[in-house]
Amino acid sequence: MFKIVRVENAEHWKRFLNLPGSIYQGDPLWTPMPLESQKQMFNPQSNPVLRHVRYECFIALQDKKTVGRIIAATDDLLKDNRVGLFGGFECINHPEVTRGLFEAASQSLFSRGKTIIQGPATMNTSQQVGLLVEGFRLPPQMMMPYNPSYYKTLLEGNGFYPLLDLYSYQWRQEEAVNQHKLFAVAKRAARIPGIKLRPINLKDTWGEGKKLAELHNQTMTQQWGYVPMEQEEAAYYLAGLRGYTDPELLFFCEVDNIPVGVCLMTPDLGPKIRASRRYGFPRPFGEPKSLRVGVLGVAPDYRRRGVAALLIEKAMKIGIRKGYQRAELSLIMESNTNMNQIITTAVGSRVNKRFRIYEKVIDV
């Protein structure tokens, strides 16, 4: 027998945070988020997103052993006020335990006036989203979703159905084709009067965060799960990158000093994390060979003027110059036809992973 318990005390939190280590104990590809970063996610003093996000966490206990967990979250800024979110889902391969977790999450959301549950989305739709459904043999980049293949069966067996897919692309210099098309479009964009590319100033995360938030709120309004980004959230995000990202990998495209595009890349520290996990302590590790392009956004008025190509060309040149051998471009919604076309035809990249957002009508 098992029981579902609401996380309310230090012992519960310890169980909640430690469960993934048990689920993925024998999986060499698991790339855990640092424990301190996990704790900060739930701390209102550390995570400004919690100003408009409300959450409850639950764990499943079986014979005093933790066998599952889930987060039920609501976002005051989410456009569709019928929708609540689930995230942080981890569970043994047990349909009944899964059902118990989702019943608890659904009841929590229903009590807050929600009639639809969507996810996975950890805390809100601006943070980690999606369930990995294709690409299990490939190691995840740091902070990217990763889960056992049986999670798909557990969700669909509990009445969830696919809402949308998100793609991850892999770029390798030696495999790229048709880049002359990309460079031609980028060259045309470079002729726009007043246009320039410049690194983001990580010494001024507050000022740069204002520009990033404004650009986000222009570029993402038509995307699933859009919530407005506040200046404090953007500044917090940029400050978090400061410790491990080369500032040259973060840059704006501006026209007359007004941002019209942004590209944010981070080095893949996954191999280092996995090596430390394998040996039980940090080990010396060479420079990362892979990048993740996590944000690539263009203001609507400039989407047909080649600015995306200009950003991608700049990203490729920086990556090659700095010795990166490959890059992951993620997550791209399947509905983002323009960006998917640019990546597949002009850049020459191919989908290497697929992530899925699920939905279910709450029935309690």
Rank of each mutant, 00 (worst) to 15 (best):
S22I: 12
E287R: 12
V129N: 04
K39M: 10
A121S: 13
T66M: 05
E254K: 13
I342M: 13
Q127R: 13
D63A: 14
H52G: 05
G297T: 10
R69Y: 00
L269F: 09
E90P: 07
I116P: 04
L238I: 11
K322H: 08
K289A: 02
L241I: 05
E248R: 09
G84F: 00
R321Y: 10
Y324R: 03
D165S: 03
S37D: 13
P140A: 14
I343Y: 03
R292V: 05
I23K: 04
G243Y: 07
P267Y: 01
L329H: 10
L19K: 03
L197S: 07
S335Q: 12
N336R: 15
E90Y: 04
V262L: 03
V49G: 08
Q38W: 08
L166M: 15
R51G: 09
M142T: 12
R82I: 04
I273R: 01
E230K: 14
F42L: 12
F281D: 05
I195R: 14
A10Y: 00
G113L: 06
N201W: 12
E328Y: 09
Q231K: 14
T245I: 05
T345A: 12
P145G: 12
A327V: 00
Y358K: 02
E328K: 08
K353T: 06
Y324P: 01
D363P: 03
V129C: 12
Y24H: 08
Q341N: 14
V307Q: 06
I71F: 01
G225R: 01
W30N: 08
D301K: 11
R172I: 11
E174W: 10
I258F: 09
Q118G: 00
G280P: 04
G113E: 03
V298S: 02
V255G: 03
D63V: 11
P193W: 11
Y236R: 15
M339S: 14
D63F: 09
T345E: 13
I343P: 04
L197E: 10
F42S: 06
I318K: 10
V185M: 13
A121G: 08
